[in-house]
Design a protein around this nucleic acid. Structure first.
Lengths: 220, 220
DNA sequence: AAATTAATTAACCGACCGGTTAGTTAGGAA
DNA sequence: TTCCTAACTAACCGGTCGGTTAATTAATTT
């Protein structure tokens, strides 16, 4: 278990290392209960250091929360910068973006719940423009480009972008509710199931935005 | 405001009426913070009766929570029973189901957040088979029928059903995060915006499952 | 090796929160 | 009218939780 590993490490007297350990544990706890429901004791318990260290290093619970959000948005920004979305047609661009996004979701499955809590509990108080810029804006840009080029249907770019991200993350926020749709004992967070979801979602998104006429004219 | 209206009503000595008032206030509070984060004081404050009445009528916070979930699943079941999904082709059936579902979401926008919290905070502990039966099973049935009849692509029915519901509810759980995608001051929960989301979502879902070949053969 | 400082701990505090309890009040039955 | 009981209130209780404080320990500098 991650918990055990984290706790077994010796509490080294290294500020940055300790901060990261706290943020790792905090990510789990915030994903479980959001800023409001997270217990600082619970975070500390998976850290190997005392609860007081949270306040020493981050000021208060909110400070730690901000730090966790910042770290995850930075991570996604880095991943985004590695993808070239400009020099390919909109269909390919959308596919590339989705692959990048789903890889991030697969590697950091705790992030979607945290952002959901952020919206529902905190009314998006800590959700900055930066977060929008690294998730929704690229999708909207691609969609607009695709409509103009005729590759995509005449859709509402903003509403569609929200729905696209919704498809990508809903599985990661709701798997506990939908477990029973699969045979008992199926682990919805196994690599195989995550990959199946990724494949299915990319197919679905592409199909949902394509312009049928454009396909016909292409095959003719 | 709903709050003011609820509170101004005289605290009648009617058990059922009081229970309903408590459940109304509880729905708001559970939608804000989930079972874990909900404050019984906050619920009582919007009720016109004392906090003690919650425990008198529902035993404990969890009892009230169960009651709220039950009420909303009953409501959806009733709406579902009024729709005929059998005697029409899969495309029409899916459209009808989505319209019904989105009407329910529009009228009870607090329900999606509650079920999201249920998954994330409580790991679906209170999410019964009944809930699955009134949300996912109908979609899966329609999808399977559509694949067999050739109307739909060869898709994964379960994964797709989850994504479909995801599209329907994500807007209602994330609007606080995505506000900035629209002009400042836009109320994402206005009737007009909700209807726009509904239209866009239904179009998108249908497009995402249709079998391209079936369309071509139809138009030929 | 002494002094300095950053990292860490254990114990503690006040506010809050779920739940209880003892007593009150309205209203229907006898 | 009296009685009974279901609905309701005000005050309270014990535990939990975010945050503080004073003292301790490990590195780093001089």
């Amino acid at each position: 278990m991650t918990t055990a590993i984290r706790k077994s490490n010796p509490p080294s007297r290294d500020s940055d290392a300790t901060k990261n350990r706290i943020m790792d544990a905090a990510e789990d706890e915030f994903a479980r209960a959001g800023l409001l429901g997270a217990r600082t004791e619970a975070i500390a318990a998976n850290t190997g250091v005392t609860k007081a260290m949270i306040f020493y290093h981050f000021g208060d619970k909110e400070g730690l929360y901000r730090a966790v959000l910042d770290r995850s948005v930075t991570k996604r920004l880095l991943a985004l910068q590695k993808v070239d979305l400009q020099s390919v047609d909109p269909v390919e661009a959308l596919g590339r973006y989705l692959k990048m996004f789903m890889r991030h979701a697969k590697d950091s499955p705790k992030v979607p719940p945290i952002f959901l809590f952020e919206s529902m509990q905190n009314k998006g108080r800590f959700y900055t423009d930066m977060f929008v810029a690294v998730t929704y804006t690229p999708v909207i840009d691609i969609l607009k480009r695709g409509i103009e080029s005729g590759h995509f249907r005449k859709l509402d770019p903003e509403q569609t972008a929200v729905n696209v991200i919704g498809m990508c993350v809903f599985y990661y926020t709701s798997y506990n509710n939908v477990r029973s749709l699969w045979p008992a004992g199926t682990d919805l967070m196994s690599d195989e199931m995550k990959e199946r979801h990724t494949r299915e979602t990319i197919d679905m998104v592409i199909a949902s935005v394509l312009n049928p006429e454009h396909i016909v004219s292409k095959s003719a």
